[in-house]
């Protein structure tokens, strides 16, 4: 038995060595056939593993791609806002340069003094339908007419949207409301605790506005027109003369002077604010003005918080006095 095993061992060793020698001796075309046979046999398994790896890679990649897209979108938004800020800054500087060219540079040294009236922005919350309903029913505050609380204290008679600031916070009629750099509307009526405002898309809204054009010299603002709400979620820019070059997509900013407001209520921000973009521009034959439709940059339903721009006396001036 043991001898048989030993014999088969020798035979198989000799067979293996003979196979090795044959492979070495035979032309590579023949040995390659054997190797190709092994490669072909391995192929289905390798394809399967590759498919599994691809599937795993795709399932790993999807969330990371989603996160990357969100990051890039946030970055793009940030850069867009930054670009707009720089464009406006350049515009202000260009205005200053223009003024200096007209008036000439003084030959004496000047010191810029503190402005008497400075802009002051306060945050306000938009009151939702449910909050307004509670106020109307008198359930929110457990106070009666004896304490002088009436609907007029909250400006509840109108159907206009409300903010939670009133006389106590120094709010006055005509003050502008912003969301970031975008104009939302202006104060219509001021109550003791709340104020109503006219959104820019309301037919009651009127404000000074102008179109910005991208030129070789940078952003340039056109002449002032009047922006009115259409009541259908859009605005119309009026009184833009046919000599102006208007194109769809151009941006609309607040005008230099709001003719609807007394001088004391004019914006003191010192920079134009954003209304929206031109979506339709038409110049009918023989018409004295362009017919321009503007889409607001933000919708009221998208925001919960606004900024109210008011004017206060510069605290530094008060301290120096």
């Amino acid at each position: 038995m043991k001898r048989e095993t030993h014999s088969s061992e020798i035979k198989l060793v000799l067979f293996a060595i003979l196979t090795a020698v044959c492979l070495y001796v035979v032309p590579s075309a023949y040995s390659d056939r054997v190797f190709n046979l092994i490669r072909d046999a391995a192929k289905p398994g390798l394809v399967l593993v590759q498919q599994f790896k691809d599937w795993q890679f795709q399932s790993d990649e999807k969330p990371s791609q989603h996160v990357l897209v969100e990051q890039l979108e946030a970055k793009l938004l940030e850069k867009t806002l930054e670009a707009r800020r720089l464009e406006l800054q350049a515009l202000q500087l260009a205005d200053q340069l223009q003024t200096l060219k007209q008036t000439g540079v003084p030959s004496y040294q000047t010191q810029s003094g503190e402005r008497l009236l400075v802009p002051d922005v306060v945050e306000a919350q938009l009151l939702g339908e449910s909050s307004i309903a509670l106020l109307k029913e008198g359930r929110l505050l457990n106070q009666g007419r004896e304490q002088g609380i009436s609907e007029s204290s909250f400006v509840l008679q109108s159907d206009l949207p409300l903010i939670d600031l009133g006389v106590g916070q120094g709010i006055k009629v005509g003050y502008s409301l912003y969301a970031g750099q975008a104009v939302i509307g202006k104060i219509n009526e001021v109550g003791r605790w709340t104020s109503s405002f006219i959104p820019i898309t309301s037919v009651k809204y009127r404000g000074s506005a102008r179109i910005a054009r991208n030129t070789d010299q940078g952003l340039q603002l056109g002449t002032d027109g009047i922006l009115v709400g259409t009541g259908e979620g859009k605005c119309q820019l009026l009184q833009i003369s046919p000599t102006e070059s208007i194109q769809v997509g151009q941006e609309v900013y607040t005008g230099e002077v709001d003719r609807e407001l007394p001088l004391s209520m004019q914006s003191t921000l010192g920079q134009p604010m954003f209304y929206g973009r031109v979506i339709e521009a038409e110049l009918p034959r023989g018409a004295p003005y362009w017919k321009i439709i503007v889409e607001p940059v933000v919708e009221l339903s998208e925001i919960k918080q606004v900024n109210v721009l008011r004017q206060i006396i510069n605290p530094r001036r008060m301290l120096t006095n």
Binding site: A16, T19, A20, V21, Y24
Partner: peptide, 21 residues
């Protein structure tokens, strides 16, 4: 030894027969 030698030679691009031997 022959089978494993063949596989090694195939995927290591070795001289034919060396793996088996």
């Amino acid at each position: 030894a022959i089978i494993v030698g063949l596989i090694c030679e195939t995927f290591d691009s070795a001289i034919p027969g060396t793996g088996i031997l």
